[in-house]
Design a protein around this nucleic acid. Structure first.
Lengths: 146, 146
DNA sequence: AGTGAAAGCTCCAGCGG
DNA sequence: CCGCTGGAGCTTTCACT
């Protein structure tokens, strides 16, 4: 576990709000020089605390309006690796979470419409040793990231 | 729904890989000038396709090693607004998804340890008109964003 | 750890096609 | 819609505390 101080936390919070904030914007807000802020961000990247920067996209605006979580159950002999590999190769799958207990995995998918969702579910069922699925259709979402 | 072209898609993909890429880095890769790339990104922000930029943090490295999804069921009269409001004020909650059918909501939480998870679950149960919870402990996760 | 300054790069607004 | 251009602003590195 990596220890960070309050200044690091403030830098992370500012970059969380806007990942493109400039060092010269951050510096006065944390009471350091521009160079010091850059060194801290560089160090946070080196130690793996910061894994990257990304753009946040509103997929609904692009016509991918349906979001769902699918719980997947597999046969007892299926390996975790196999679960992730098969689920992940379905392109509509945004994220895969392996779970302790039942179900065995939870996958987050984004699709254009209900028919498309049906196809994705079918795809998942046939991809691996899936014994059952349960789909949770998302009506609305709230994320601290945005 | 907003229509975007292939160049926009390439710009979005590049920014998805690295949200701090400079326009001058992107420009040659999409065959446009720096100014043209900037105008496209500005437009994508104005139209709401790009909702923001953010840093990606490895919370496990900071000691928040446990991730879980908690399914929440509420009394029949509970409003969606109320569900989101009560769940969201628990600070360990990263995201809230309201769901069609059962359960009523799925919340994504991040905690330091099992004891902390227990506290968060208790907090959620007492926050609103919760009639039941089911916790899915995350063993591993794979996300297309990173 | 921190600062400050210089060189080079990036951004951005205006203009014209 | 695009590209070009110049001034402003940002990043990066270096020497030094």
């Amino acid at each position: 576990m990596i220890e960070i101080d309050d200044v690091d936390r403030r830098v992370l919070r500012l970059l969380h709000e806007d990942g493109r904030r400039t060092f010269s914007d951050i510096a006065p807000q944390v009471g350091l020089s521009v160079a010091a802020v850059k060194r801290r961000v560089d160090r946070l990247r080196e130690t793996g605390v910061i894994t990257g920067f990304s753009v946040q996209v509103d997929h609904a605006k692009l016509g991918w309006g349906i979001e769902a979580f699918i719980e997947l159950s597999y046969t007892g002999t299926t390996r975790v690796n196999e679960i992730v590999r098969t689920a992940y190769k379905v392109p509509e799958v945004q994220a895969v979470f392996t779970i302790a207990g039942a179900p065995d995995a939870l996958v987050h998918v984004r699709v254009r419409d209900i028919q498309h969702l049906q196809q994705v579910i079918d795809g998942l069922r046939h991809a691996g040793q899936v014994t059952g699925t349960k789909t949770l259709m998302v009506l609305g979402s709230w994320n601290r990231a945005s």
